[in-house]
Amino acid sequence: MPVQDFEQLFQQKIDAEVKIEPKDWMPDAYRKTNIRQISQHAHSEIVGMLPEGNWITRAPSLKRKAILLAKVQDEAGHGLYLYSAAETLGMSRDEMINDLHSGKAKYSSIFNYPTLTWADIGAIGWLVDGAAIMNQVMLCRTSYGPYARAMVRICKEESFHQRQGFESLLVLSKGTPEQKAMCQDAINRWWWPALMMFGPKDSESTNSDQSMKWKIKRKSNDELRQNFVDMIAEQVKVLGMTLPDPALKWNEERKHYDFGEINWEEFWNVVKGNGPCNKQRLEARRKAHENGRWVREAAMAHAAKLAERRKQEAA
């Protein structure tokens, strides 16, 4: 069959909501887009362990410490499923990790911001996981089967994290004046970067049209961002806190909140590597990998020795 016919059949499957599976024929660009997106998502989970990991040893109560440790561990687990999902498309985990370390592969820019106070841990749960969920709920129905199935499980855990984050801020919001100030300060610092997580405006987004046609994505960046603003603008009232945007206002006609302009210069700067923590995050990942090299080598050497011994015993 000519490639054109394959492509047509492929699109028909997509249109009929049939999931694409690893051994199915798929256009090269579909494969590449999925590898790029899934591996980027996996890297985000792994790099995302670092800003939160920054507070594990300093969590203010044993209960909070247990919640945070379990949360960061969940992220490692998400990274693991996602690397496995991406591997079904023909790229090894090692290759993906090398691309992360060389700077070729990206990860979510949000993790290039520092966690300065304990309240940042709550703010990340509420705002960053909240923004991620908007995207991820949509991805549960993405057209590539292994990715969609990984997302179903990830979404359940992420919504739990978001509730935990909110609850942790709720306690601060009812606490001492210092705790309230800490809570508002964290919201002020994380709000705009969280909005940036949805990516460039639809008018500026290069990958969007094809991804929508292939149902890798099902909602546009601007739509998801609007849904997020609408949700958070209500939730922040429960905390008795405010969002740092004077333009934020309910629009009765649109039935949505209007909000101010994102600082796109900052957005592109962080993407290009100039965020407050880009260097530290990548350095921490490279260092962990480098320091672990002898461990991985020893495990392989030992496994080889064991196999050799078993062979000799059997002979």
Binding site: M49, L62, K63, A70, V72, A76, G77, L80, A288, G292
Partner: peptide
């Protein structure tokens, strides 16, 4: 728990964090 996010390989990072969580649970 100081290792969390810095382990030599993802599976072992998870395993050691698991142990950290178990021990924390016991201490509580």
């Amino acid at each position: 728990s100081e290792w969390c996010g810095h382990g030599p390989v993802l599976e072992q990072d998870i395993a050691l964090t698991n142990i950290a969580l178990d021990l924390l649970g016991q201490s509580r």
